[in-house]
Each structure stands twice: as C-alpha cells, then as structure tokens.
C-alpha cells in the first residue's frame, strides 16, 4: 500500500536527477553564481520551470561537489513575518525556547534557501535578507541579539514573476540590486515539445500539438490574458491525455478553465484547442 513520508525541510535533498532541459545558458550561469556565492533571482512567468531548475541545480551541484545540497523552499505571502523566516521564541511547557525558521536553518546548514514569489512578502520582512544577500553573508537574529554567519555552502535564491506582479508589489531597489538575475521564459516550441513528452510520457505528436497550442495561446496576449498557459499546464493536459482523456476535453480541464474566468477568453482558448486537436 502506498505511504507518505514526512521529511524535515532541511533534509530535502535530491538523490535522483530531476528532469530538466536547459533553455539557454542558465545552468552555467547558476553554477558560476553558486561558486561565487552570489544570491540569485530567478525571473519568469509561472509554470515555466524555475522551481524545477533549482531542484536540478541542487542535485547537479551536490553531485559535482560530492555532498548533498538541501533545498529549503519558502512560499512567500503578504502575511509572512520576519519571525516566519528567521525563527521565534515559543512557549514550550515551562520554558521559552527559540525555534529556527527556515531561513536560519538553511543558513546554518548550508542549504539553498528558495524564497518563491518573493515580492508577495511584506517589504519590511524582505529587508531582513539584505545582510545575507551581500558581502556580509550573515543573518541577524534581532530577538536573540545575535547573528549567524552563513555556512559556506549556503545560497539564497528568490523568484518572482515580473509580468504577473503589479507595480505595487515590485521589489525594492535595495533588495533587487543584491541579486544576480537569470531570466526565464517559456521554452521554444521544439524544446517545450521535448519537455512535455519527457514529463508526461506522451508521444511526440501529442506533445508537439500541445506545445503549438501553448505557443498560440500565449499570442492572445496581455490585453486579454494576464498570463498564457504555462508549460506546467500543458504537461497537465498531456498527463490527462495519457490517462485516456479525449484531447479537447483534456485541454478544457487543464488549460481553458484554469487560465481564465472570462467567457470570451475561455472560448478563444477552446477554439485554439479545437484548431490544434481534431474533433474525435
């Protein structure tokens, strides 16, 4: 019977190679940044492979270095406080004990700490990472009156989606300018075809059609669609098809409905799917 397992965040390591196909020179750039211990900002639309890329890099760098590099991910949100990242005092029985937050744990252990969608976090919280993201590489623990010097293997990585964020949630310049940035976009059709086929286990014809649909749906553009279907959604559609769902129906479920609530835009996506996939 299948079982689940609970793993502490700081033990999240990759033993098997995560599936990732490079789009440009992002692998080499990230390796160079890691060796120089430069914090990295991954910019790109949702579902284009930022997280997978980071998983792959943790695996790859760990393999090259002969040691495991855990990946600690924090999904940022507007109520994320400094305590959530760094740690806090908790009442434990008769005592008050300090509990490290994920960032402090990563700094101590030499993990890669990934702050996903960093602009969602409050700006005052983000200022906390400044000493970690420059030459000091240290994390002040204000409430303890101490600071942690980062483990040499520690790396801070943030991600955000420039298209999706409103200007109100843009990164502060003082934060932005502490990171080397790698730009991600959706892959070209040929590469996206290989990714879909590799991830979903569908044949090349279906993967090619889905990549074509993705490309054309993204053409609909910002006037109608906040964001076109991501590679992730195309993979979902492919997986549904692999389970025997009729292609247009799979596109409806995995692409049309998730991408937009606007009936006109939904119909446009439906028509594009019908143009790519023949009627059964």
């Amino acid at each position: 019977m299948p079982t689940s397992s609970e793993v502490p965040c700081e033990e999240h390591v990759f033993e098997a190679e995560p599936f990732y196909l490079p789009v440009k020179d992002e692998v080499e750039l990230f390796e160079a940044a890691y060796k120089a211990r430069l914090p990295v900002n991954l910019k790109g639309p949702t579902g284009c492979g930022k997280t997978r890329f980071l998983e792959y890099m943790c695996w790859r760098l760990g393999k090259e270095g002969g040691f495991e590099i855990p990946l600690i991910t924090v999904a940022c949100h507007e109520d994320l406080t400094a305590g959530d990242l760094v740690g806090r005092y908790l009442l434990h029985g008769e005592e008050t004990v300090w509990v490290d937050g994920p960032l402090a744990a990563a700094v101590k252990q030499g993990a890669v700490c990934y702050l996903d969608e960093v602009v969602e976090a409050r700006k005052d919280t983000m200022v906390l990472i400044h000493p970690l993201a420059d030459h000091r590489r240290m994390l002040p623990l204000e409430k303890k009156g101490t600071f942690i010097r980062a483990n040499p293997n520690f790396l801070l990585v943030v991600s955000y989606n420039p298209g999706y964020q409103s200007m109100l949630k843009d990164m502060k310049f003082s934060t932005r300018q502490r990171f080397a940035a790698i730009d991600f976009g959706y892959p070209q059709r040929e590469l996206e075809t290989r990714i879909i086929a590799g991830e979903a286990g569908v044949d090349n014809d279906i993967a090619e059609k889905l990549a074509l649909l993705g490309e054309r749906s993204r053409n609909v553009g910002e006037t109608a669609l906040e964001e076109g279907p991501s590679t992730r959604l195309l993979i979902y559609a492919a997986r549904l098809m692999a389970q025997g769902v009729e292609p247009r129906r799979a596109c409806e479920t995995a692409i049309v409905l998730p991408v937009s609530d606007d009936p006109v835009v939904q119909q446009v996506l439906r028509d594009l799917a019908a143009t790519v996939f023949p009627q059964p």
């Binding site: 053409n219 609909v220 835009v265 594009l272």
Partner: peptide
C-alpha cells in the same frame, strides 16, 4: 465578434 479577433491574434500574433 469578441472571440474571433482574439482567436486570430492567437494564430497570427495580429489583432
């Protein structure tokens, strides 16, 4: 008339 200009944009990148 609302749908097909956007559909055309999807196919051709032109509104």
């Amino acid at each position: 008339k609302d749908c097909f200009p956007l559909f055309a944009k999807g196919l051709s990148e032109k509104y």
